[in-house]
């Protein structure tokens, strides 16, 4: 336990109307963690990530980033969001901007880097995800896998302390999933702190340092991937994973 926690989620609850989506969640992300969050659809996995990035405002509880509660940051919320990268299922690349401009907009406007410096850095990052040759392309000219790799580069360009992935491969056809997972795997190996909501069990098992199983707005079980995948303690976890394990 010598690792320093970046994010501490404490008693987090979120309700939409009268519908409780997250119930009293406690959850930590430490430096170098690669956390996979798995579970059935509608179990609150995405909402958890969206609360961490303040795309949703938590109903109750607190989220501490380096010890400071993010729910009352005021104006600092913008620089906080830049430190916590987000990759969406539907990419959400800016359609009106080129690949290059997608990766420099945040650097220039939020981190106030020079344009030249930002472009150089963007190019470096884009080449890490294999997208540098496409820097002049518009998002609509790219395949889904390419878009997602650019989206990862866009998040990385801001030097975030942690990147949140919200089902990054769910909108991709099976052939394109591999290229995105390869990039994420590479990131994980280089020590990037990541929280990944995913249905890719092989990725969760092979790459992550910790797996969290959620159902009905509650964390049912969490543990090392080998433990959780071979010997789940919780019945619901066993039932959920049964489909993957029986093959």
């Amino acid at each position: 336990m010598d690792k320093e926690p970046i994010l501490e989620v404490r008693h987090l609850s979120k309700t939409f109307g009268t519908n409780p989506v997250l119930k009293d969640i406690d959850f930590d992300i430490c430096t170098g963690d690669v956390i996979s969050i798995i579970g059935p659809s509608g179990s609150g996995k995405s909402t958890l990530l969206r609360c961490i990035n303040l795309l949703e405002i938590p109903t109750a509880g607190s989220i501490l980033f380096r010890g400071k509660d993010i729910t009352d940051l005021g104006k600092d919320v913008f620089s906080y969001r830049a430190k916590v990268g987000m990759v969406f299922q539907s990419f959400n690349l800016f359609d009106n901007l080129s690949v290059m401009d997608n990766c420099t907009l945040g650097q220039v406007r939020v981190l106030h880097r020079d344009r030249e410096e930002a472009e150089e850095y963007a190019l470096q990052i884009l080449s890490r995800v294999g997208m540098a040759p496409y820097c002049n392309a518009r998002p609509r000219q790219l395949s889904g896998g390419q878009k997602q790799r650019v989206a990862i580069a866009r998040a990385m360009a801001l030097d975030p302390e942690v990147i949140l992935f919200d089902e990054p491969t769910s909108a991709l056809d099976p052939e394109l999933v591999g290229e995105v997972l390869d990039v994420m795997r590479d990131l994980a190996e280089q020590g990037m702190t990541m929280a990944v909501v995913t249905h890719e069990m092989a990725f969760a098992r092979q790459v992550s340092s910790r797996v969290v199983f959620m159902d009905e707005g509650v964390i049912m079980e969490e543990g090392a991937p080998d433990e959780l995948f071979t010997d789940p303690k919780n019945d619901r976890t066993r039932e959920f994973l049964g489909r993957y394990l029986s093959r």
Binding site: G130, A132, P133, Y134, N136, R138, R149, E179, D182, E200
Partner: peptide, 29 residues
Amino acid sequence: FELAVADPLTLTSGVYRNPASGELFGERS
């Protein structure tokens, strides 16, 4: 659009593949 192949950085990248992952990971989980 034009592929920016003239850029020196791209020579080292090309199409990305993690050497450690092999073919295994490129396929379904």
